[in-house]
Design a protein around this nucleic acid. Structure first.
Length: 656
DNA sequence: ACCCTGCATGGGGAC
DNA sequence: TCCCCATGCAGGGTC
């Protein structure tokens, strides 16, 4: 992969000859981001945020490899719902966030279902083979991946067992657009594409590690002073040399441009708000994710200024009502206090000198109270600082250390645009979401730190404006209803309730128990997101309105003055031999699938009686129901069934 | 009367 | 079940 060619989001080799670059394929990377394949030169590129610009759309249901939960993939650009496993399976966000290592069995299953796809789409199913045997193959089942045309795990709908005796397919004759443009890659490119895929992953991984990897920061000659005012530091400070990997801000990775195709994306990348857990020492196991610093590189750079110092993000805390109250006591997480602040043996503690982001130094009393055979650490005298930063309950304060000086730094992040992320689940969501949707991520958790709040506010503003009432509605060239905005993000993606701005008077009020509140947040967020994507499949351009064409970011959009209308969910196919496209829709009465002209907009309720377009095809259509055995084998659920039915009918139809 | 300090309590998250 | 931590509150100090 030629990473240099990723600049500006286009294949450099091809863009010189044409202004219209069509990315033929994309697949999400496990580490976040997307890889795309240039239609002209076939080179694979990594695209972090462009995915939605190219309207890469995938429909269908995927099954989590860990929990078997079904997830609807409205668009791979929204694949924060999923985690792609190396083995081809996917994990739902629930399993991603649980941070459980993917079980061996999961991997084994995925391996079991590996399919020789050298034949590409339409390859003979007889050539399907199990590449590895195992316990899961006890039923002598052949394993089958849907004929996606390549071994891209996301293009296929996941492994499905097929009973022996299931008819092998001949040339199917149709290229399924159900997995969208993804499937349109030429079969001859599959192997190279996959190799490129691996390369992309490796490159990306290394870059992630470069940017975000965590390590011990202290060394023997860089013992931090922790800003202790008086010389009251105790000698044993070894446990406190822990923290996130120091960010050498003046030595950015030279190849960081591979992240970004657009210049804006580069800045977005630097604003990726990724929690940075400690990796070594006891902090690793003790520090809760909600205290992991979510400071961005850009914020770090802001803090460090032009100095040669290295900023080590330590931890952060969402201010509680009592923290931000008049008492002026900021309760410190015990693990953080013991890990990153100087050890204290007496309850009165010692004064700590902490510098804020404006460079002003504050002196707080770092002390503890005995509490149930434990300690409760507090910073006293924070009121002036809190007021200076105009912080209130719900805002976040971040603590960092500047090495080699060891000076403690205090930053903050206003919560005006987000509900405080107090829950580790939410944190986990953020991690995965941010890695997959950096553009949204940057706007999702907007920091308002001194110095660059304007930039971020403008970002937030652009998003909000798109949320409010888009004046125009955009559709992809393939008429897939996308409703995208200029930055390419699909409206609704990432626009979860939790990101809605809350009135100030509500922000700090807790309604219901904390656990219940947070549970609802994450659940609703997930469900709303899925629901939105389902709705996307039903949105159609208004027939009565002719679109005008607008070019945004060198991508052509059809622009409609009227909002989209709801239509029946359909599957679009295209013949391998040519460009002829067809539409398949299921009768709401008999549930049979009917082939229709591609340009037909079906009402939400549609039956065979309404099929007045092609009686001949109607007659040819075979009425087939999935046999019970097959149905069992396909472990079909309600919403997945129609997809399976479609494939099965396609097989039978082509065979006959 | 108000403020400050230190401790107690209990909900709830982590293990 | 443990224990963290948000918060309440009692008691002393100060105006």
């Amino acid at each position: 992969m030629d990473s240099r060619s990723c600049m500006n989001g286009f294949c450099a080799a091809s863009s010189s000859s044409s202004t219209s670059i069509e990315w033929k394929k994309a697949w999400p990377l496990r580490s976040g981001g997307f890889a795309t394949l240039c239609a002209k030169c076939g080179t694979a590129y990594e695209q972090l945020v462009f995915c939605e610009l190219f309207h890469l759309k995938e429909t269908g249901w995927r099954e989590c490899s860990s929990c078997s939960k079904r997830l609807h993939c409205g668009c791979i650009a929204s694949s924060s719902l999923l985690e792609l496993l190396d083995t081809g399976g996917v994990n739902c966000i629930e399993c991603c966030r649980s941070s459980k290592p993917h079980s061996t069995s999961t991997h084994e299953k995925a391996k079991l279902c590996a399919v020789s796809t050298a034949d590409g789409i339409g390859g003979n199913l007889d050539k399907l083979k199990c590449t590895q045997s195992g316990d899961d193959a006890q039923n002598d089942c052949q394993t089958l991946l849907l004929p996606s045309g390549n071994d891209d795990p996301l293009v296929s709908l996941g492994p499905m067992k097929l009973e022996e005796g299931f008819p092998a397919s001949r040339e199917i004759g149709h290229k399924l657009l159900i997995n969208s443009n993804l499937a349109s890659i030429e079969s001859s490119q599959n192997i190279d594409a996959y190799k490129a895929h691996i390369d992309v992953k490796n490159v990306h991984k290394s870059l992630i590690e470069t940017n975000l990897s965590i390590a011990l920061s202290a060394s023997a000659n860089t013992i931090p002073s922790y800003g202790v005012v008086a010389d009251e530091r105790e000698s044993s400070i070894s446990p406190f040399h822990q923290g996130c990997k120091p960010c050498h801000l003046l030595q950015r990775p030279p190849n960081s441009t591979v992240f970004a195709g657009l210049e804006t994306n580069s800045s977005m990348t630097s604003q990726l708000r990724v929690a940075r857990p400690p990796v070594e020492g006891r902090v690793k196991n003790q520090l809760l994710p909600r205290y992991w610093p979510r400071i961005t590189d850009k914020e770090l750079q802001q803090i460090s200024g032009d100095s040669n110092s290295t900023i080590v993000p330590l931890f952060e805390k969402v201010l509680s009502a009592s923290d931000a109250g008049r008492i002026g006591r900021l309760v410190l997480p015990k693990a953080c206090a013991e890990a990153y602040f100087p050890p204290i043996s007496q309850p009165e503690g010692l004064p700590l000198r902490i510098q804020d982001v404006k460079g002003k130094e504050w002196v707080f009393q770092f002390r503890f109270w005995p509490n149930n055979n434990s300690r409760m650490y507090v910073l006293e005298g924070v009121t002036p600082c809190i007021q200076s930063m105009q912080l209130q309950a719900g805002d976040t304060v971040t603590f960092s250390r500047m090495d080699p000086e060891g000076k403690l730094l205090m930053g903050f992040r206003k919560a005006s645009s987000t509900i405080p992320l107090q829950d580790s689940h939410i944190s986990a969501i953020n991690i995965s979401v941010l890695q997959n949707e950096p553009l949204l991520a940057a706007a999702e958790n907007l920091p308002i730190m001194s110095g660059y709040s304007g930039i971020l506010q403008s970002l937030k503003g652009s998003r909000n404006s798109s949320m409010n009432m888009p004046s125009k509605h955009y559709y992809g060239r393939n008429s897939s209803p996308l409703i995208t905005e200029k930055n390419g993000s699909k409206a609704g993606d990432g626009m979860l309730p939790q990101s809605l701005p809350l009135p100030d008077h509500k922000r700090s009020r807790n309604i219901g128990s904390k656990s219940r509140r947070l549970h609802i947040d994450s659940q609703n967020a997930l469900e709303l997101k899925v629901s939105w994507e389902e709705v996307q499949d039903m949105l159609r351009p208004p027939l009565s309105v002719k679109p005008s064409t607008a070019t945004i970011e060198d991508q052509e959009f059809e622009e409609f003055e009227e909002p989209p209308v709801f239509g029946k969910m359909a599957i679009f196919t295209v013949r391998l031999s040519g460009d002829e496209q067809e539409q398949w829709a299921q009768c709401d009465s008999c549930f049979k699938w009917r082939r229709l002209p591609v340009d037909i907009l079906l009402p939400p309720k549609w039956t065979c009686q309404d099929n007045v377009w092609d009686q001949r095809r109607l007659a040819v259509m075979i009425n087939v129901y999935i046999p019970d055995k097959v149905e069992k084998c396909f472990f079909i659920d309600k919403k997945f069934k129609w997809i399976m039915l479609f494939f099965y009918q396609m097989f039978v139809f082509c065979i006959e």
